[in-house]
Design a protein around this nucleic acid. Structure first.
Lengths: 233, 233
DNA sequence: CGATGTATCCATGGATACCATCATCCCAGC
DNA sequence: GCTGGGATGATGGTATCCATGGATACATCG
């Protein structure tokens, strides 16, 4: 949080939304680790706002599941249990398969090209910080064609909840390669308008991630290797 | 809102949660109709709290989709378009089928009896005000056996978004009878541990509601008969 | 030396007062 | 009849104050 620039200028909309963005980004890129206390006046000072919009932001993030409140003790960054991870992936599989099924017949050339382009960047990206964003960008590009913004938004919130841990999983080059291949198969099936194959590949993709994340979270915290470096290779 | 007793006494937890409950109830039972402005200081006075927790409550309800914000104009009760209704039911079908599939093998005797009891009350209930609550109570009883609280909570929020309109749909005795029969078929399939039938009946149930609600919302507002009386028969 | 009680500190959660900004409405003036 | 410009009122945000309860350090007692 210290490094976040206190720059609310040029921001339209509610101040709370600005605070939400700042905190969310900190959680997603790992600079705000699980159990990190989120002190209201400290955040207010850092971002150059007052306490009220900070509390409003924390409440929004609570609704997304990214922070957890304890009465009279304030908010901390949420920790995910293995069971919760499985639950989130269960919801993601249900919703993302539905979204893709609806989106498939509406995927136009432009969108497929865009998905292809995101995927190429993702495959060559060596910096962990961008993986989560690009990964979501790829999936979102497909789902948006469903014309169901609320469903896409719900899926995004679920994705954000596992985003931090996904980075750890992707730090292993083997899993990263597998993930990229799964993305390619999904995209190819979309190009072929092969609905059955696309949905099946998406299911495989999500189930693999669910399995690996659950296995990771079932290990005691001490044994977990969080992937130290910003570069792999 | 005028009739709500300003009685925060005996309420543990955050004041905002108390305000959320009050406003949510007003929206669900129809006393706060769509497009009703939700004035912050008026609500604060009525409930005997200050403005701050009211704004926090409105933000929570925004996250649930029950209220809509317009910059510098505050919050109003959300209105649902036909497209949004279809979107919500698409999400409900995806999530509720997944929840029921997981819950089915874990449904014990006690829970089935509880569901049966809720259904009996619902079938004999003549007062509209309770229909929404009892309807959700029935579905929730089944889904809770999944052991996935977050999924159940997400489904509840989606249910609340269509709850108001469901009442109109159920005001027609014909649809009400059909709905009750669908509930019975779902419950019977659960008792028989017939997973395929239970999921299929749930899908039929939700798709029927989706179809009727979409048809209702596609009519111009002037033509809509909102079902005047509190009693049918 | 360990367990328990106590004083202090500190952050939360909420109330209150105040203010800039923006939307809306009403009305004069053309 | 249309337009422009105050009143008016609500939002959204700041600053300040305070009661409550958790946490910690310390002191006292067994």
């Amino acid at each position: 949080m210290d490094t976040i620039i206190p720059a609310p200028q040029g921001f339209s909309g509610h101040t709370a939304d600005y605070v939400v963005q700042a905190i969310r980004q900190g959680i997603l890129d790992g600079s705000l680790p699980a159990h990190q206390p989120l002190r209201q006046d400290r955040i207010a000072d850092t971002l150059g706002v007052s306490k009220v919009p900070v509390r409003e932001a924390l409440i929004q993030l609570k609704a997304e599941g990214l922070v957890t409140f304890t009465p009279n003790r304030g908010a901390v960054v949420s920790e995910l249990s293995a069971a919760e991870a499985v639950e989130i992936y269960t919801m993601r599989i249900a919703l993302e398969l539905a979204a893709l099924r609806i989106a498939l017949p509406r995927l136009d050339r432009a969108r497929l090209i865009r998905a292809e382009s995101v995927l190429s960047i993702l495959e060559q990206e060596e910096t962990r910080a961008q993986w989560g964003r690009l990964n979501w960008e790829f999936h979102q590009t497909l789902y948006q064609a469903s014309g169901m913004p609320r469903m896409v938004e719900t899926i995004r919130a679920l994705h954000d909840n596992v985003g931090r841990y996904l980075l750890i999983y992707l730090a292993d080059p083997q899993y990263r390669r597998a993930s990229n291949e799964e993305h390619r198969r999904i995209l190819q099936a979309c190009r072929d308008r092969d609905s059955t194959a696309a949905l099946e590949q998406l299911r495989v993709h999500l189930e693999a991630a669910s399995r690996e994340l659950a296995a990771f979270l079932e290990k005691p915290r001490a044994e977990r290797t969080m992937g130290g470096s910003d570069h792999v290779g």
